[in-house]
Write a protein that binds this DNA or RNA. Sequence first.
DNA 1: CTCCTGCAAC
DNA 2: GTTGCAGGAG
Length: 253
Amino acid sequence: MLDARCAIMSNMKKQTSNWPPSRLSQKTKTRLMEIYDRLYRHFGDRKWWPAKTREEIVIGAILVQNVSWANTTKAIQALEDRGLLSFRALDAADTALLEDCLIPTRFYRMKAQKLKAFSGHLKNRYGFDLDAMLEQPEDTLRSELLSIHGIGPETADDIVLYAAAKPSFVIDAYTRRIFHRLGMTPENPGYEAMRSWFMQHLPRDVSLYNQYHALIDALGNRVCRQSRPDCANCPLLELCLHGNRHLPESRRP
DNA sequence: CTCCTGCAAC
DNA sequence: GTTGCAGGAG
């Protein structure tokens, strides 16, 4: 067990406030890299973001909220077919037409508004020059993104990491689930706390963050599912509290 | 607690 | 066929 306190924290009802601990843990650093290595050996190179342009990455980051990639792809295709795959076009687009393209992405009305909000922001501050926005230092960029309607912490980090290629570790539901099951993080760490925890214990490296998040995505998607997780085929089984919960206390990781 | 569809599981 | 779940932002 990395830390007996994690198990106690897991059972706490709501928000965990005094986490992560202020002191860095060498053990955590080592364990995080071991997990990375195992995932890499199991899944291979997963570094990704399937998009042709930076604009497409940003649009995709907004549209993929709460939806599978398959559905997001349908919407991106629909936008492309109508010549709407740019913020200049989105800004001028008819809302009803835009909504039609976004139906496969679930909350299509809200997402149409979100794309409009982003295009409006880009137009007003940068005259649609996305590169100008993205070339800012990562912290400035991140706060600015968070101020835009429809951009929450995860989407902001997607954009910082994948569109701007600057170091910001992305936390998603898979990350929370996997590391809680491993017994390394509390059930409700809070987004910022979890992000700091990763960033403090990993080298500040864009490629590593990119690859790590992609590997977590692969595991969460196919193996460490919410219901009926496929523990038998998990490359992290030996390290996992959840996968080994049937073992006697003394033999758990 | 609301936005909301798509697809797997029954 | 119907149901139930995926899980981000406000």
